[in-house]
């Protein structure tokens, strides 16, 4: 979008138009982003988009008033606190605020970026701006535990729930194994039915409509494709978005990617 915009600006007669081709994906490797308190509220909190909101003020200050959902990680102890953040490969968006959007927020952001976290956002104007905008303020103790749960994809079943069903499948449920025959022959979950993903469109008759279908494969990719095919046909269906290892005894290991 930026090269197109640059071309249009040049057509209007602008003579010094540049394009930062690498854009945000490169920027966030070395720098923080910013967002306004209004955007924090509207684009993240109100929409319930998973993120980590960090209050970096001293705890005594935060407790007088903070943004709902924030965890306390005082800037003074940020280096030691990094181990408490979710693993960086989860790519949790991290929003940081201090009192006024100043040095403490920058210090915390720098420490997190140096540790490989991205994206890290600083809330412009900090808590004062949030309060001034009339947005809701909470008082009391802040959470210390940093929790980040990525939003599941449509149709995804919780990994714990799948494990429960796989150990004892209720009569109204069918586990559909959509891996290929070789994979199935090497071991399947007890009670599961094997219909390789590529055969589903030809084998709907074998898949009961009156049961809840839970599809799995070995990574979640084929299971998701199976989910879409079955959903389109009116099935009640979910899929497991996780790595699955099954041995010849039917014992299984699930791992969230």
């Amino acid at each position: 979008m930026s090269p197109d915009s640059a071309r249009r600006a040049e057509k209007l007669g602008y003579t010094n138009v540049k394009v930062y081709v690498d854009g945000t994906p490169e920027w966030v490797k070395r720098n923080h982003l910013v967002l306004s308190t209004q955007f924090l509220k509207e684009a993240w909190i109100d929409k319930d988009i998973p993120h980590v909101l960090v209050d970096v003020r001293p705890a005594a200050e935060s407790e007088k008033g903070f943004i709902k959902g924030a965890v306390t990680v005082p800037a003074a102890g940020i280096e030691k606190a990094i181990a408490r953040f979710p693993p960086k490969d989860k790519k949790a968006p991290i929003m940081i605020y201090d009192q006024k959007g100043g040095a403490d927020a920058v210090k915390a952001a720098k420490a997190l970026i140096a540790a490989g976290y991205a994206p890290v956002d600083i809330v412009s104007g900090g808590f004062d701006a949030w309060k001034a905008a009339g947005f809701p303020v909470q008082t009391g103790m802040l959470a210390e535990n940093i929790v980040y749960v990525p939003k599941p994809r449509p149709g995804e079943i919780a990994i714990e729930e799948f494990a429960k069903i796989a150990k004892a499948t209720p009569p109204d449920t069918l586990i559909l194994d959509v891996r290929n025959r070789d994979e199935g022959n090497a071991g399947m979950i007890k009670g599961a039915k094997l219909v390789p993903d590529e055969e589903i469109l030809d084998r709907f008759a074998e898949i009961p409509k009156d049961k809840k279908i839970v599809a799995h494969c070995s990574t979640g990719v084929r299971a998701e494709m199976a989910y879409h095919k079955l959903k389109e046909k009116g099935y009640t269906v979910q899929f497991l978005n996780a790595k699955v290892d099954i041995n010849d005894k039917g014992e299984f290991k699930l791992e969230k990617p």
Binding site: M1, S2, P3, S5, A6, A9, Y14, N16, V17, K18, V19, Y20, V21, D22, G23, T24, P25, E26, W27
Partner: peptide, 10 residues
């Protein structure tokens, strides 16, 4: 004057 455009990578 200098204008710099960016997006989420070209």
């Amino acid at each position: 004057s200098l204008i710099v455009y960016y997006c989420a990578g070209v």
